[in-house]
Design a binder for these strands. Structure first.
Lengths: 210, 210
DNA sequence: GTCTATATGCGGATAGAC
DNA sequence: GTCTATCCGCATATAGAC
């Protein structure tokens, strides 16, 4: 049963290294060295680097699927805020996935397929979320606008953390701020928010632009 | 002078391969094979793969800088449309740059720095563009909203083509549609467009949603 | 389960002939 | 300018002892 522990330690260390240095830059030797175990031992637990990546990707999928399941329950701006915040936290915890997506789907095509499927699911969840907001009277938008908004939300949650690294100054913080990312996403929704629901938006603006 | 020709052929082939298969997946051997020349010959023209990447990146910079220079001249929605269209064409022509940015800035840190600088320049250009649109009465937005819009435009032009590959169905086309990308970007501006300038927007909506 | 030692292959880069 | 031949180093993966 100590093997389970080592297995888990390998996954944790791999995730940290992938996030910090990129999937391509981290070799199995590097992971083994980080843990103070031999490359042979690492190979005993995971026959290939691919299997480590696959396992981590699965956890990422599971976490997002959980969030998607509750997306349609959003009823107010602060629900939306929380939902976005949790999503950015999840994506940040596995940030190597979207950041190194091109490399990942090139090296492990099946994971590329699954990433597409996950995106499709995210789009459905975002659409349900937008429709729930319209139904609750939180935002005012045509069906077409709601659809576009859903696309923008998924686009933003998927790519924002990668983009942030391109903006001088922001990466200096080293670790992303899910709150700021969520606020940025809310500005997409902002033009459609009904008068009655603006209060929370103004509160957040004060918090993040102040 | 035949060397200039070979040099240029190497750059063209490298660009095509990088765009098609990713920066990490394309080796110098592969490039040489594609051209039907020997790896040694390739090394004669470019001492290192890094130099090929650097040269292509410079061309990308130059092309975007040219577009940035004319961004502030935008006076109407169709100017904006054209400006976005040209930008997406440029980014698509060098799509490996943003798609493989994580790998690129990991392998060649100086290029990562330059990518940041380019993003800063893009942000300034987008800000000038938004302010010009406000001044021309094409859109109605507070200074704060214009600033946010500029950020959204740069974010979208930078990341949209990479994101598109994650959406099932869209990548089937293999080559991106700069027109569709530009239309998508226009939807960000849409809520702020004044009544007098809506005509062109409606025309585009009919074209891309029809 | 964990180690050491090693096989295998590839990519980048070089030397020297033509 | 272009070729062939080769070196070096790294990363994945394996074999077999403890």
């Amino acid at each position: 049963m100590a093997s389970l522990k080592t297995r888990e330690r390998i996954l944790q260390a791999s995730l940290a290294l992938f996030n910090a240095q990129g999937l391509a830059a981290v070799s199995t030797h590097r992971i083994a060295a980080e843990l103070g175990i031999s490359p042979g031992n690492l190979h005993y637990h995971f026959n290939a680097k691919q299997l480590i990546v696959e396992r981590l990707f699965r956890r990422f999928e599971e976490r997002l699927e959980l969030l998607n399941a509750s997306a349609a329950n959003v009823r107010a701006i602060d629900d939306l805020w929380l939902s976005l915040h949790l999503r950015f936290e999840a994506i940040d915890a596995y940030r190597f996935v979207y950041r190194d997506m091109a490399y990942l789907s090139g090296e492990y095509p099946p994971l590329g397929q699954r990433a597409q499927a996950l995106t499709a699911q995210n789009l459905l969840a975002a659409k349900a979320l937008c429709e729930a907001l319209v139904a609750a009277g939180v935002i005012e938008a045509t069906a077409e606008e709601a659809q576009m908004l859903a696309l923008q939300i998924v686009f933003t949650t998927t790519c924002w953390l990668s983009f942030e690294r391109l903006v001088p100054g922001r990466d200096a913080l080293q670790q992303a701020d899910p709150g700021l990312a969520a606020y940025y996403t809310l500005t997409l929704v902002s033009p459609y928010v009904s008068r009655e629901s603006r209060a929370y938006l103004d509160f957040l603006r004060g918090k993040y632009l102040g």
